[in-house]
Design a protein around this nucleic acid. Structure first.
Length: 112
DNA sequence: CCCCTGATTGTTTCG
DNA sequence: CGAAACAATCAGGGG
């Protein structure tokens, strides 16, 4: 941990993603909500901007935001997490059935 | 015609 | 704790 003063080459490369049309979509982050709102406004003001350019601008603005300003977005994200949480919690399909193999079959002892 | 890449940050998830 | 994957978004390039 400490040791940051060195020349630690932080070669961070977040490999992008290729959207999957099918898959457990992860909950959106506050940044996503912010981008959705900001992009629309940005698009009206600068419709010539491309997504990649918007991303840069938005990302920069996002960094300027404070927790208070991010708060409302985090709250939205918070709700989305719950949504995802529920979606996950409820597995209508028997897919993924190795959940909690706590095979504890309590004996029904005498029911009647 | 359909799939993928680009750029941003945050969250999610496995080990 | 850390890395990898992936979330929205759209425009354009390639097979």
């Amino acid at each position: 941990m400490a040791k940051q003063g060195g020349k630690a080459k932080a070669a961070k490369k977040q490999k992008r993603v290729k959207k999957d049309k099918s898959g457990p979509k992860k909950p959106k982050s506050a940044f996503m909500f912010f981008s959705q709102d900001r992009r629309q406004t940005l698009k009206t003001e600068q419709p010539d901007l491309k997504i990649t350019e918007q991303s840069k601008v938005i990302g920069k603005e996002w960094g300027e935001l404070t927790d208070a300003e991010k708060a409302p977005y985090q709250e939205k994200a918070n709700q989305d997490r719950e949504r995802y949480n529920k979606e996950k919690a409820s597995s209508p399909k028997e897919e993924e059935k190795k959940e909690e193999p706590e095979g504890d079959e309590e004996d029904e002892e005498s029911e009647d």
